[in-house]
Each structure stands twice: as structure tokens, then as C-alpha cells.
Design a protein around this nucleic acid. Sequence first.
DNA 1: CAATGTACTTAGGATAGACTAACTTCGCTG
DNA 2: CAGCGAAGTTAGTCTATCCTAAGTACATTG
Lengths: 222, 222
Amino acid sequence: MLSGATEDYLKTIFSLTRDSGRAGTKDIATKLGVSQASVTGYLQRLAGAELPLIDYRKREGAALTEEGRRKALRVIRNHRLLETFLHRMLGFSWDRVHDEACRLEHVISAEFEEKLDALLGYPTHDPHGDPIPGRDLDMPINSRIALAELEPGEEAVVDRVSDSDPELLSYLGKHAILPGTRLTVKAVSPFDRNMKLCVEKKRGTIVLGPLVTRQIFVERNA
Amino acid sequence: MLSGATEDYLKTIFSLTRDSGRAGTKDIATKLGVSQASVTGYLQRLAGAELPLIDYRKREGAALTEEGRRKALRVIRNHRLLETFLHRMLGFSWDRVHDEACRLEHVISAEFEEKLDALLGYPTHDPHGDPIPGRDLDMPINSRIALAELEPGEEAVVDRVSDSDPELLSYLGKHAILPGTRLTVKAVSPFDRNMKLCVEKKRGTIVLGPLVTRQIFVERNA
DNA sequence: CAATGTACTTAGGATAGACTAACTTCGCTG
DNA sequence: CAGCGAAGTTAGTCTATCCTAAGTACATTG
Ligand SMILES: [Mn+2]
Ligand SMILES: [Mn+2]
Ligand SMILES: [Mn+2]
Ligand SMILES: [Mn+2]
């Protein structure tokens, strides 16, 4: 069995290799909150195992092997199922589910995973709008269009929100900006890129800076 | 924060000190599945901490301090709430809940504990009939009367069943012997102490040996 | 009361995972 | 092209938790 530490490394490498093909030591260290030296050591060990979970090249960072990818997706599936459970059944607010799920994801059995999936009605997305890999571990692509990219006049529906910052989630939750929320871009100020938005249902407007609008991903038009 | 290992030591010492006042190295080692040497070392460390969780005396074993007792009860509460959840909401059979709960119990937050308690409707007993310590951590006494102690002709209701052996639980489950089941002792054979029982509802009889009847605890008469 | 067996402890060591301090690489810039 | 800084690596440690092998203590018993 994999340790919790290994599973968190795999998850992190998975998410960092979505964009760039490889995950760098520094970025992994930052995401996991450990030192760069620790990461170097850990990557070397993971790559040197019998059935390696990652492909590591000195000074070029790490990528997942096929086996590593499967393991990563399993953990991500657990994580998102758990987040969904915590939010929907236990009533955790969406900014409190991440840490709890990040601990639980390493200790639940396959039986737990299956039964939870069934209890929740086979959900396809977690509370932040991220897709939940299916039992076969394939995962739909989610939106890569940041709200920040839209022009004045465009309409969009929130697809997902970055779940890494609880403060941000809490803030957005208060303003009813969550997956499914319809938005209209009223104006974008030059230089600072502040965006004035009309939020449907809330029937109000809000101004968000680029640090925020880059963390919100949308489907255009819809 | 306490490690999972420490929490399992505390739980084990708690249960072993119910009968005898102190828990011996050997018994702890057996229950936890580690070597005696490991236990000695661990106890020494626990007892030598700033705020010690146990009182350890060379060659006399360990007992919990007041602080250790509180910590142990918290873990036991988590364990039993989780078992109840696994059984009632996820549909785990009662012989599969223990191991899962023993891993989960160390990673759930106080918030999770509270919300789970509420979701379950503040249950007082786990699927095996063991009492769940309340939020204030006091725990009702449970039955100490083993079915094996009853005489022919006596009637009783099952209060709880030892949850340590999944095989036993599975067997008893198949024969509808679980908390709440009413039993009548039809006969006890001499020498081997086999017990012929009438199981209510099942409307049938079953013969159980002493290895089994010593693991079932009952309320007389009821 | 000496022999013995069981419970217990000590000594020495392994492994996982993390840290700091001190290099090394290497692309970029002046 | 020399030098700088960021990213990465190495070396040396540390703690938690476990192990095996080799003793020690003590109650029991012949
Ligand atoms: Mn995690
Ligand atoms: Mn999420
Ligand atoms: Mn446990
Ligand atoms: Mn139980």
C-alpha cells in the first residue's frame, strides 16, 4: 500500500503536469509545504522503486508513469467524493472541505469509496466544480477559460473555482459565485483589470480584481 | 496533535485497564500487533512527555493519566460514531466496520465528529452494542455478564458482542444474534459447556460453544 | 531455596520522511 | 563572456516507529 505522503506527491505532480509536461522540485515543494531538499530526496526514491510511479530526471523534474497516473486519479477520486460528501451530507461549507478530505482520502478502502459513490448518487463534480474521475478513472476535461479572459458584454456560467484558498472560497460563497452561477461582464477597467460583474439571482453587481478572476473558470455564453 | 499510533496505544491501554488496573506490555503488544520491545520503548516515551498521557512503572505496566483517559475516550467516541455511520449509512456489514473505523478515527476533525453525530441523530450505541461516549466523554457502563454465565432456563437479551473477531461477527450475524436479540438458554452440556439456545424471531435453536458464548454479553431476564 | 519460564527491558539497528546548510547548474543579462 | 540568481542537489541530521537478539526480574514450584 502507498503511504499518505506518496499519495500526496502523486496528486501534486498530477496537477502540476496538467500545464507543463513536468513538475519542478520547487513547485512540488511549495504545494506540499515541505523543503525542496525533501522533494528531491522523495522523488529519487519514488523513481527508484521496483515499479516506479514517476519518471524523474535530475534537474528536469518529475512526470507520472502510467501506474503513477492511475494511483493519482484514484486519490483524486477519493478526495472529490469525500468533499462532496462533507458538503452535501455533513453540511461542511465549501471552504472547509479540502483539508478534511486531504486527510481522509488516504485511509478509505475501495469498499468505502464504492459505497460512498452510491450513497451520493454517483456525483460527477465536487463542490468546487472539479470533475470526479469515474470508477474507470477517466475524467472529463474541465473548463480552462478563466473569467479574467472575458471581454465586456460577454456572458458566462461559472464552471469551477480554484479550491486552494479557503479565504477566496469563503468570499466567493458569500457573493453566490459558485458553479452554475450566471455572470455578465459589465466592464473591465484598464491597467488594473478589475472586472465589474452582474451576478444572476443575487441581482447585484460586484467588482473583482484579477487575482480573483484568474481563479474562476467559466463556460462562455452557455 | 497526537499521532495515530499514540491514539491506538491509548485506546488499547484504556480497554485493558477496564478489568485489571494496569495494562501489561505483553497484552498491549498482542492487541496492537507489535513486538513487546516496541511497546516498552513507546510506553517509556509516552510517560516521559511534558504532559504525560500514561503512568508507566517498570515491570508493572501502564495506566492512563486523566489527560490520557480523555484522549482515549475521544478516539473511542470517534471510532464508534464512525462504525455506526459505516453500518447505518454506507451499508457496511457489522463485521467490516472495525478496521475501516480504526483508520478513520485518527484523521477526523472535531467538526467532522460533531456533524456526524448530528447526522446520525446522536446515537448511543455502535453496531456491536458498545456505548458511544457523549460529547462530554462520559460513557455508560455496559453489560459485563457473558452469555456463558447463564444457567439453563434463563432468558436474556443480547447487549453487545465483542467486535474483535470479524469471523465471529459474521457467524453471529447470520444467525441473527445481535444487540437486542432475545435468547433462552435451553440446555448447557457438562464438560464442554456447549449451550443450546432458543433465538427469538429466528424461531430456531442453535448450539454455541464457550469460545463463542464468552464473547456475547447480555442483560438477564429483561 | 534453587531452577525455570514468562514477562519485561536493553541494546543496536532499520526505515520513512522531513530539516538545514552548503554546494552545483544553468539560463540570462550587462 | 563573466557573473548573478533561481532552481536543484548533496551531505549530514533528526524524530517517530518499528524490529531482532540478548539479557534481567520475578513468581512459582519441585
Ligand atoms: Mn492528502
Ligand atoms: Mn475540490
Ligand atoms: Mn486506530
Ligand atoms: Mn464496535
